[in-house]
C-alpha cells in the first residue's frame, strides 16, 4: 500500500540570536494508512518541530522549513497555498498536544470548541454539529455528555480535557493524527486510560497515528514502528519489536538500558547514558552522539554516519551498527 505520509529530507531551521539551529536536519520517514508510528527523542531533539512542520505550524519568524518534501496523500504539503493547507489542518491531519489545558480555549465551551472545527471543515448545520459533538464526547468516554457540552475547560480534569482533545481531533474523520506527548502531563493511571482509548479509536476508524514521546516505554505497547531522533536527525528506525529486541544504535541501546524495569529483577546500579544532551548550537564534528558514546571508533569523529540498512527494514545511523550487538554482550 502507498504511504499516507512520506517525509523526505525535511529541514527545519530556527534562526535565533545565537545563530542558526538545525532543529530538524534532513529527516525522512513514512507512515502507512492506519499505522501507528512513534517518534522518540529527548527534549530539544527536534521531534515536535518535525510534527509542526507537517502541519506547517512552525513558529514564525524564527522558524522556517528550508528544505525537503512532505508528501501527504499524494500531495506535497510544502507547495500548497495557505488556504489549501488550512483545509487539510484539522480535517485530514489533526493534532493532539501535550498540555490539554493550554491547547483548549478557556473562554469557549467544550461544545463550541468541537462544533467550531466541524463547522469550519464541513457544511453542517448548528444542530447537526451539536449532535455530532455529543456523539464524539460519548465516544471518548466522557460521562454525562449533554451537561458537559456546555461546560468550560477549567471544569474538566486533565484526563477529561485530553479526551476532549481526542474528540476534537477525531471530529472531522482525519486520516492522520499527530499526538505530541499526549500523556506526559497526566497521571500514570490516566495515561493508561488515554493510550488505550487512542489505540481503540484509531483502530476502529483506521486512522494513522504518529505518537511523539520521550519515553520508549510508553509506546512499546502501541507502536508498529519506532523512529528515534537525536540532535535533529533520525538515528534509528525499525519495527517496534525489532528495535526493542535488537537496538542498533548506542543511543537507543542506552535509553533502553538506563531505565529501571518492573518486569525484571532490580539492578544494583543503573546504567546511565553519560554526559549531557547535545548542545544544538555547538554540535561536535562527525556523529552528534560521539561525546556520550561508549562504542565510538576513529571514524565517528570525522564523518557523520548516514542512516543506512542494519537489518530487515531496520536502519541505523551508526558506523558500528553491525557489531554493536556483539560489543553489548562483551560489555555487559
Amino acid at each position: 500500500m502507498a504511504d499516507l505520509l512520506e517525509v523526505r529530507d525535511l529541514r527545519t531551521y530556527l534562526h535565533t540570536s545565537h545563530g542558526v539551529v538545525k532543529a530538524v536536519d534532513g529527516v525522512s520517514y513514512s507512515v502507512a494508512p492506519g499505522q501507528t508510528v512513534a517518534l522518540v527523542g529527548e527534549s530539544g531533539c527536534g521531534k515536535t518541530m518535525s510534527a509542526l512542520s507537517i502541519m506547517r505550524l512552525v513558529p514564525k519568524p524564527q522558524g522556517s522549513i528550508v528544505g525537503g518534501e512532505i508528501i501527504f496523500a499524494g500531495r506535497d504539503l510544502l507547495t500548497l497555498k495557505d488556504e489549501e493547507m488550512r483545509r487539510i489542518r484539522g480535517a485530514e491531519i489533526a493534532m493532539i498536544f501535550q498540555e490539554p489545558m493550554s491547547s483548549l480555549n478557556p473562554v469557549l465551551t467544550i461544545g463550541r470548541q468541537i462544533t467550531e472545527t466541524l463547522e469550519a471543515h464541513s457544511a453542517v448545520s448548528k444542530e447537526e454539529a451539536r449532535e455530532r459533538a455529543l456523539e464524539l464526547l460519548r465516544l471518548v468516554g466522557i460521562p454525562d455528555p449533554v451537561q458537559r457540552l456546555s461546560e468550560y475547560p477549567h471544569q474538566f480534569s486533565g484526563g477529561m480535557r485530553q479526551r476532549v482533545m481526542i474528540a476534537i481531533a477525531l471530529s472531522c474523520k482525519p486520516k492522520l493524527i499527530l499526538a505530541d506527548e499526549p500523556t506526559t502531563a497526566l497521571d500514570v493511571t490516566i495515561q493508561a486510560q488515554i493510550l488505550e482509548l487512542v489505540r481503540d479509536l484509531t483502530q476502529k476508524f483506521g486512522v494513522a497515528l504518529m505518537i511523539i514521546t520521550h519515553n520508549l516505554g510508553v509506546v512499546a505497547r502501541y507502536a508498529d514502528r519506532v523512529n528515534v531522533m537525536y540532535a535533529g536527525k533520525i538515528i534509528e528506525s525499525a519495527g517496534a519489536r525489532e528495535i526493542y529486541e535488537n537496538p542498533r544504535h548506542p543511543y537507543t541501546l542506552g535509553l533502553l538500558r538506563s531505565v529501571p524495569r518492573l518486569d525484571q529483577p532490580r539492578k544494583a546500579k543503573l546504567d546511565p547514558i553519560e554526559g549531557q544532551p547535545p548542545d544544538l548550537w555547538n554540535l561536535p564534528q562527525g556523529c552528534s552522539f560521539l561525546p556520550r558514546c561508549r562504542f565510538a571508533v576513529g571514524k565517528c569523529g570525522q564523518e557523520v554516519p548516514p542512516l543506512r540498512e542494519a537489518g530487515d527494514s531496520h536502519r541505523s545511523a551508526c558506523w558500528v551498527a553491525e557489531t554493536l550487538q556483539q560489543q553489548t554482550v562483551l560489555s555487559s
Binding site: T189, A220, R221, Y244
Partner: peptide
Amino acid sequence: ALLSAVPIPDPLVEAKRERVVLGGE
C-alpha cells in the same frame, strides 16, 4: 492498578500483559 499502569519497554512483554485500567478519576 498502579503497577499495571507502568509501561514496560518491550512489546513482547506488553503483548502478554493484562492491564487493569482503572475507570474514572
